[in-house]
Design a protein around this nucleic acid. Sequence first.
DNA 1: TATGTAAATGCAATCGTTTTCAAACGGAAA
DNA 2: TTTCCGTTTGAAAACGATTGCATTTACATA
Lengths: 341, 341
Amino acid sequence: MNREQVTIKHIAKELGVSISTVSRALANNPLVKQETKEAIQKLAKEMNYHPNFTALSLRQRKTRTIGLLIPQVVHEFFAQVIRGIEDVAYNQGYNVLISSSNESFEREFKNAEELLNGRVDGLLACITKETKTFEHFQEYVNRQVPLVFFDCVTDTIDTDKVVIDDLHAGFMATEHLIQQGCKTIAFVGGPKDLNINQERLLGFRDALKKYGLDQNPELILHGTSGNFDEGLELSRELFSLEQKPDGVFATTDMLGIGVIKNAKAAGLRVPDDIAVIGFSNWEIGEIFEPALSTIDQKGYDIGKIATSRLLKRIDTDQELSMMTEVIKTTLISRASSLRKK
Amino acid sequence: MNREQVTIKHIAKELGVSISTVSRALANNPLVKQETKEAIQKLAKEMNYHPNFTALSLRQRKTRTIGLLIPQVVHEFFAQVIRGIEDVAYNQGYNVLISSSNESFEREFKNAEELLNGRVDGLLACITKETKTFEHFQEYVNRQVPLVFFDCVTDTIDTDKVVIDDLHAGFMATEHLIQQGCKTIAFVGGPKDLNINQERLLGFRDALKKYGLDQNPELILHGTSGNFDEGLELSRELFSLEQKPDGVFATTDMLGIGVIKNAKAAGLRVPDDIAVIGFSNWEIGEIFEPALSTIDQKGYDIGKIATSRLLKRIDTDQELSMMTEVIKTTLISRASSLRKK
DNA sequence: TATGTAAATGCAATCGTTTTCAAACGGAAA
DNA sequence: TTTCCGTTTGAAAACGATTGCATTTACATA
């Protein structure tokens, strides 16, 4: 392959000046005589010179790249987060290196290691469902690697975090169902040990308690993935119970839609016989019939805020104390839960 | 920030050997005495040494990174493509740098330029709807930059391409509607000048011709984005025509779903009064009611094949001739078009 | 003791930049 | 002519790694 880059050396040789002069001229350094400068800049343009990024990174010990560690790209929430990240990063001249682990802990670990070998200046991370040990992250924190967790976080690591108010969101969603007249409300959630699910469940319980409703443990179900098929599966379980729910809080939109689909198949009317609310505000929920009530998870905002935080940490020499930013979610009520009074 | 990387220099100093020896020992070079080697490797582990990626890139003039240029990440098709890309790249020790242009030509151009300054070894690109001039890509080809186009391509650039058989897919979709008994079929497409839309339209026309059906130009509509709202909008137009269609080929699933939604609202039965088929096989189509017939666009395969091709080009010194790989799509028929006989 | 040889190690160049420090230059003043 | 000073320029070190070549060892052989 003959794709040789034009370097400042080539320019220097061509013009019979030193590489230092070329470097300075291109940086518009006032030390260089106007005449020389112009000649150099002109030739650089002609030769289509572009500074070599790798050399710059090495010299300046900065890659102007941030790493993003996520479980999967094929996910509307992460796609939104990515957009937020890119908008901020791009504005400040940073690139984003995305590493998805496909929910594999091993791959998450390997990706992180690889990114940190001088490939990126900092890391944004959302841990996978599979991740149970966090030593590697702790080590990064010790090494002072700029690191911001978002969405799925862990209490065991002291670093910057950007999360939503999962507990309160769970409370809101449940309270909404109660206000619509639901008396027997089920919780259909993703993996039990994922902390966001625990929080949402706490919120759910708080709401039941506040309104003096029963807490039937049979009505609390957990899956492993949180997708559509699981929604079908778990709701089947739900509908076979003696005490049938008249409201469901699903911790993902896909679970919620799965529940509705099954409910409709079982001849139940949504929302009159059973009201359903999901979580995340995916596009599909708006289009589905009946349109799905949900909690807006603010992916774009999370991405933006996490990135701002990370870049601040990268660009500052001072010791910043760790911060956890909690983003307010909002309730979006649609046909799947709105009962006519 | 005190995050100093451990380098081979540190190790060398600590052990009182030269950096060359350290470098060799870590590469398991047999020239180094077993004893020394072990000591070095042990210390490297202890000090948590990781080779600096940037230095390696510079030295070996290879970044082991490929760039991905796409209009948007928030898109199920691209998400699938990305998964395909990552699976292949990861296996061969490559990372992926994603740059999304948000459908802006200017940003596409800037991103490409930036990636190519020694940041990546090659480029995968899908042009935006906005892109009308391709000179920059031509220049990359001239510079022998390894470059593979996928999905949205252009004939004007001679480089590797991976596409689906849009024409044939358009034909299949239309033929399917005809076989279901449709006589008056409409075409609802995205941007008119995007070559994939032109191809799909050609396929549509071929099918009509083959079966001797009318080609009413009023029944051929083009939008600008291809999303759900546009589906609503265009179908409104469609339903106000004198000659109402009894079948619709939409070039995206979202358009198709928009059409169905409107049809239902207008009291039409799908598929009996009007059969609809989309394009892409997004998850939503399977869940929507009625489930949407569609063409599987093979995003994952496209990603895999494009990446394999790119890596081959990167890793070989020989002159490879340019190749266009056409991937076969498949028809997925579901309730939105399947009429009971 | 001198020499040859193989094994082990080190030096230095290199990748493409930036930047510090020193040097060259030209002209003005002494 | 020297000295000095401001303006330009260049040499070289550095970033962290690899690698061709030279050198140093240790030991066997002449």
